[in-house]
Structures are given as structure tokens and as C-alpha cells.
């Protein structure tokens, strides 16, 4: 279950300061698109514009023919933030259910069972644990489950693994790939990591420093399902090198 996303001349400025230059973008349903770029280049702002959590200064965002506001109102859009944002007074199971419990009137009638999702990410034994009892990786897994619990056709992820160590990040990217095999969705994914982008994406957009513009649009053709071994292939290294090359070009 996934939707197409269309950005038409989407731009953002804070006062007279342009942050995002007009961007046109078509994302086909079920595509995993990564946004990579230097720190502070406005990738996160672009994500917030797509979610409608930030108002566009110009242009329109259309998601499956609807506006971001309509998607939010019907809980058809999932956000996985950089900080897991778990509520410390709720257990793992309660945090996983949070988005289903709030604004309950508009909850989707069909959605994955959070308990089963927690099982998929290996947290069954921690259902009654509180966030402070978990490692950083486990917390982010709860945040992933919480995002997927809505069964939303569009998932927006803002550097969800940025705060994790390298080993945990590698685990998480494989876990995310597996979850998407089972629960397909269109994904916009912000990251700093070329390897993360290459491993997960169908398409990588390389962004320039502020004001943000897309400087390269790279298709990643590795067959799915992708697994760990992919990262050791020369083809993978070549894709990462190409992305890095575009990024350096953007920063000059």
C-alpha cells in the first residue's frame, strides 16, 4: 500500500532568507527515496514541508491526489523522527500503540498489529519495559514500529539512525529493508550516510547547501530483497563513490 508524491515548485523561505529553492519532484508509489546533503542544507525542512508540518512559501505538495493536511487528518502519513521521541512514562508496547491511540476517531480500520511489529523487530521480551531501560538501537526500533503501526502509505524518516553507533546502524538499515518488504510504503528518507542511502534506496537525491536544490538524481538498481552481503560488492562501492562525487560537486 503506497502512494505517489508530487512536489510542484515547492519553495520555502524564512523571511527574506531562501531555504529551499523551487523543487519539482515526482516519486512513484512504493519508491524509497533518500535525500542526502551537507548538514543544515534544508533536507529536514523539505521533509517537514511534505508532511505539512511547515507551510510552503510557494508551490504545492500532492500525495496520492490529496494535500498533506488531508493525509495528516486521516492518519495516512507516518513520521519517524531523528530522536525517537518515546514517551518515558509509557512502556514499549504502549509507545508502539501511541499513534493509533491519539486522534482515535480517525485511526485506519486496517493496520498492522503493533505487537506483531514489535515481534518482527525482536522486542517481544521488552513489551513491558520502559524507554530508559532500552539501548539507543532498541528505542529507535520502537520508533520504527510506532511509525509502521498506522500502515500509512507514506513514511517520512528524518535521519532516524543518525544517533546510533555504526554497528547498530548497519543492523537497523537491514531491519528497515525487511520491514518494507513486508509492509510496503513510499518512503522519503533523510540521511548523511552514503552507504545507508545506497543500501536502502531506489533513488537518491543529492542536495546542495542552502538554499536547497537537487543537484543529482541517482537511480539505484540493486535487486531486492537486499541483504548485508550487498555492501561488500564492488558495485555497491561504486554507487557510494558516485554519490560522494555528486555531494562534493554540490558543496563546491
Amino acid at each position: 500500500m503506497s502512494v505517489d508524491v508530487t512536489l510542484h515548485g515547492v519553495a520555502k523561505s524564512f523571511g527574506s532568507l531562501p531555504v529551499v529553492q523551487p523543487i519539482d519532484l515526482d516519486v512513484a508509489p512504493g519508491t524509497f527515496v533518500s535525500l542526502v546533503g551537507p548538514s543544515g542544507c534544508g533536507k529536514s525542512t523539505l521533509l517537514r514541508l511534505v508532511a505539512g508540518l511547515e507551510q510552503v512559501s510557494a508551490g504545492t505538495v500532492t500525495i496520492g491526489g490529496a494535500s498533506p493536511a488531508e493525509l495528516r487528518a486521516h492518519k495516512r502519513l507516518a513520521v519517524v523522527p531523528q530522536q525517537p521521541g518515546l514517551l518515558p512514562w509509557r512502556t514499549v508496547a504502549e509507545n508502539a500503540r501511541l499513534l493509533l491511540e491519539v486522534n482515535r476517531r480517525h485511526s485506519p480500520t486496517r493496520h498492522p498489529d503493533p505487537a506483531e511489529l514489535l515481534d518482527e523487530v525482536g522486542l517481544t521480551e521488552f513489551l513491558d519495559a520502559y524507554p530508559h531501560e532500552l539501548s539507543g538501537g532498541m528505542r529507535q526500533r520502537v520508533a520504527l514500529v510506532r511509525g509502521f503501526s498506522l500502515g500509512a502509505p507514506l513514511v517520512l524518516m528524518d535521519e532516524p539512525f543518525a544517533a546510533l553507533d555504526e554497528i547498530t546502524r548497519a543492523e537497523m538499515r537491514e531491519l528497515l529493508a525487511r520491514m518494507l518488504d513486508r509492509h510496503p510504503a513510499t518512503v522519503l528518507f533523510v540521511t548523511h550516510s552514503m552507504a545507508e542511502a545506497a543500501y536502502l534506496s531506489d533513488r537518491v537525491l543529492v542536495m546542495s547547501p542552502r538554499p536547497t536544490a537537487v543537484v543529482a538524481d541517482v537511480a539505484i538498481g540493486f535487486p531486492r530483497p537486499r541483504r548485508d552481503a550487498l555492501e561488500d560488492t564492488p558495485e555497491f562501492a561504486a554507487v557510494c563513490a558516485e554519490l560522494r562525487h555528486h555531494l562534493h560537486g554540490a558543496m563546491r
Binding site: L53, A73, K75, V79, P81, N103, H106, L150
Partner: peptide
């Protein structure tokens, strides 16, 4: 983060307050 998360599913104001 939690506030933005709740905003992403249009959580009504009273519920943000309470939860």
C-alpha cells in the same frame, strides 16, 4: 520530537495536553 509526532497525526489540542 514527541510534539511533532503527535502533530503528524493531527492530534487534537486537548489530547496533546492530556497525553
Amino acid at each position: 520530537s514527541s510534539r511533532e509526532l503527535l502533530a503528524s497525526v493531527d492530534t487534537p489540542r486537548w489530547e496533546v495536553m492530556w497525553r
